[in-house]
Amino acid sequence: MSLEPDAREVNSRLPHDIERTIFETAIFMHPTCAPSLLQTARRVQSWIEPLVFKTLVLSGRNVDAHLWAALFTKPPAFFAQHTRHVFVGKGLPDDDVQLVVSRCAAAESFVFEAKWRPTTFPDIWRLPQLQRLTLSFRLVRIAAVPGPGSGPAILPNLTHLTLYPAHQTDAESTGRYLAFLAALPRLTHLCVCMVQDEGFLHHILNQCPRLQVLLHVFDAGMYTREDYIRDMAALHDPRCVLLDLTRHYLDWTEWALQDWRLAAAGGVELLARAARFVAGKNGSPEGRLEFLWEDPHRPPEDSDALPVGESVDGASV
């Protein structure tokens, strides 16, 4: 019996360029289907792998087996070539996170979940293309940041940084925060969350000469809305923006994840929207020092959690 396919069967197949478009569209619209689509055929795998691995969400409890195997089996150059955005969730051992960092050497954005509590922080300081970084104040405190004179500038292309809770006000912690910020040669957009120290905000503005936007996001509690407004008003700086995200419950990790997803997809994320607010008020002499901002895309007032997207525990590639 001949193993040659029937001529009618061959002619009934879609052209490869149309097939490829279908699979690429499926990945874009339904990213959680990626692992199963990778098993479809070798040609499909070659088409969609660069898309699948461009943006990685890694959480210790639910990292997809195919993804985790790829981190260990694919050549290091594969992730350096294709991966641009990485979210690191809680539950990953320190060594595994360092492996991810070393594999994704050309990443443009990294987010380290607020609840991730490693004993050591991975060596991200020489990533040449990293432009956006989100991490907690705690991680800055434990990080071994290379000091001046120890080599090339750290994170030479980092322009956007978000530091989320919890900020500590003791002198040692403040010194670590400021040394880290001062060491970033191209930092232009900074978001800090729930800083209850007016003096620290003053130091940021003084030590970051390239800074264009200082966005302060808060969820009021014992330190009230009026306290945050008072501290920001004392700065008298047109670069300052204050955003009230007070909720019954605000999940900082979910908030950061959704904003990171938006930026990775080419959307107008939080710091870009804040920059537009700063640019708009700078065009009005009487409004230059206004800082209270009502972000039109912030979570709705009556929500206990962020309204869109999956939770980080359900995230996948």
Rank of each mutant, 00 (worst) to 15 (best):
D295W: 00
D237C: 14
Q98V: 03
R43I: 15
D251V: 05
L235M: 11
H216R: 06
V308E: 09
Q196P: 00
A105G: 14
M29K: 11
H248I: 15
N206W: 06
I48N: 02
E49C: 12
A315F: 10
L271S: 12
D64L: 06
P75K: 13
S102M: 11
Y164C: 09
R8N: 13
L271R: 12
R186N: 15
N157V: 08
D64Q: 09
D95I: 09
Y223S: 11
Q196H: 06
S102E: 13
I48E: 01
L214C: 10
V140L: 06
S284L: 14
D6N: 14
D295G: 04
Q81N: 14
G147S: 11
T119D: 09
G287Y: 10
K90H: 13
T162P: 00
Q81A: 15
D123F: 00
T162R: 14
S36E: 14
V278R: 03
F28R: 15
L245R: 10
E113I: 00
D96K: 09
A70R: 05
Q212Y: 01
A153D: 15
A179K: 07
T246V: 12
Q39K: 14
R261P: 00
K281G: 07
R8Q: 13
V100T: 04
N62K: 09
C33K: 05
T224P: 02
R288A: 11
R132H: 10
P152S: 14
A275S: 12
E226L: 10
R126Y: 04
L71C: 09
I18F: 05
L158G: 04
A105W: 06
